[in-house]
Design a protein around this nucleic acid. Structure first.
Lengths: 218, 218
DNA sequence: GATAGAAGCGAACATTCGTTTGTATACATA
DNA sequence: TATGTATACAAACGAATGTTCGCTTCTATC
C-alpha cells in the first residue's frame, strides 16, 4: 500500500473533492461506483484501493459492508464534517460607482456576505464574489439597477463575455461586455442610449466574469 | 392505498421517528431493512408501503433505485431538513408551458430544490417556491427564458404585481402582471410584441407573487 | 352476508453495491 | 538482473438493498 507520508495523489484529491461535492448535492453519500464514474476511474477496485488510503490517512471514515457508508472527516480535527452546503460570497460595493475592487478583495472588507448553496455555483466556488449594480448600463442584458451580480474572479475573458473591468487611469470599475480589438479593448454597454468605451489594452484589467444575477424585490 | 387525510398511523409515526433518530446517529440514511428491524415490522414490503404514504404526505423524499435514498422533509414547509440557515426552495416545472402548478404543489414532486440562505428571502420564508421561466413574455421586466423566478405563495395580489396566475379554463399557468379591471382581470405581459390576456375574475387564480429572480450563466 | 379498500405478510426477484481475486505496469532497490 | 512495492485494471462474487407479487386479515359499508 501507499506510504504513510500524508501526501495524497492527484486521484485521491479528486476523489475527496467529488465526495465533498456529492454530499452537498445529495442527502446521501456516494457509492463506490458513483465515485468511479465521477472521477473517471476504470475499476471499482481502484476506488476501493484509494478509499482505503484516504481512510488510513484520516480523511474519511468507512462503514464496512454498508452501502454508501462513506463519511468525510475534518482532516485537522478528525471529526465528522457536517453539511457544508453554503459558500459565503462576499458582496462588495456597487460597481460603476467609484472604487469598489481592489486587486484581491478580502471577504473581511465586504459590506455583507451572501450565503449561497454551492450547487448553484460553478464547480470552482473559490474566487466567487458579488457586486451590487449601480445604473442601467446593462439593462438590455437584463441586469437592472440594484441587482446583485455574481462574478468568478479571472484575469482574462473571451470576446463578448460580461466582465468587471478595472480602468486603471480612471480609477474605476465598470460592468460591460468585453471585446478585444487589436491593441485596444471595446467595453460595450447593453444600453442603446450609451456609447461603448474604448481603452488601451494596457489600461484595462479584467477582474472577473459574470456567472449569475440575483434580483430580489422589496 | 391509504386515504389522503393527512393523519399518520402509529406505525408511520414510529417510522418517521426512527428515520429521524437514525440520521442523527449515522452519516447516511437508513435502508428499508434497517427501518424494518428498528420498527419491528415483519416485512420489507410493509416498510415500502408506508414509505410511499409518507412520501405522498410530504414527510419524506425518496430517490428510486438508490440505496438509502430517503430524505426527511420538514412537513410544514416541505423543505429538506438539516441545513440550519438554508431554506430549501422547491423548483417546479416551467411556467407558461403546460400544467405546472397544482393547487398545493408538493415539495416531494419538485424536480429539484434550491438551497437559499434565509437572509436572501423575505421575512416569511414559508410558501416560497420557484418556477423556471419558459419564453420571453416578461422580457421587458428583465426576466428571460430560463430564469428561475421565486414566488411567495399568495391568493391575492395588488394591481401591477407580477404573479403566477392559474387560468382555470385553459388549464395553464402563466407569469404576468396583474391588473384587476372590475369583473375581469387583465394579465399584462412585459413584451410589446405580445397582447394582454383578459379573463373573467372567476377564471383567474393567483398562485403566488414574484419575490425574486435568479439567473445563472454557464 | 357480500364487497371493497386499507393494511399487513412472506417470499421471491432484480438491481445496486462493497469486496475480492488475479493480473499487469512502472519504479525503486538490492 | 531480480525482487518487492505502489498503483491500476478487469472481471467476478456475494452481500446488501429496493421492488414486486400473490395472498391474507381487518374493517367499514351496503
Amino acid at each position: 500500500m501507499a506510504p504513510s507520508n500524508g501526501k495524497l495523489s492527484e486521484r485521491q484529491n479528486k476523489m475527496l473533492e467529488f465526495i465533498s461535492d456529492f454530499v452537498k448535492e445529495h442527502p446521501y453519500p456516494p457509492s463506490v461506483r458513483e465515485i468511479q464514474v465521477g472521477c473517471s476511474i476504470s475499476s471499482t477496485s481502484v476506488v476501493d484501493y484509494n478509499l482505503h488510503i484516504l481512510r488510513r490517512e484520516g480523511y474519511i471514515k468507512r462503514s464496512p459492508d454498508i452501502s454508501r457508508g462513506i463519511q468525510l472527516l475534518d482532516k485537522d480535527t478528525g471529526r465528522a464534517m457536517g453539511h457544508p452546503n453554503a459558500v459565503s460570497v462576499p458582496v462588495f460595493g456597487a460597481i460603476a460607482a467609484g472604487e469598489p475592487l481592489m486587486a484581491f478583495p478580502d471577504a473581511s472588507e465586504a459590506e455583507e456576505t451572501l450565503e449561497l448553496p454551492s450547487s448553484m455555483l460553478p464547480a470552482r466556488t473559490d474566487g466567487i464574489y458579488a457586486l451590487r449594480v449601480k445604473g442601467q448600463s446593462m439593462i438590455e442584458d437584463l441586469i437592472d439597477d440594484g441587482d446583485v451580480v455574481l462574478f468568478q474572479r479571472r484575469q482574462t475573458a473571451s470576446p463578448g463575455e460580461m466582465v468587471a473591468a478595472w480602468l486603471k487611469e480612471r480609477g474605476e470599475a465598470t460592468l460591460k461586455r468585453y471585446y478585444p480589438e487589436g491593441a485596444r479593448i471595446r467595453l460595450q454597454p447593453a444600453n442603446s442610449a450609451m456609447s461603448p468605451i474604448y481603452e488601451d489594452a494596457d489600461n484595462v484589467e479584467v477582474q472577473g466574469v459574470v456567472v449569475g444575477v440575483i434580483r430580489m424585490f422589496r
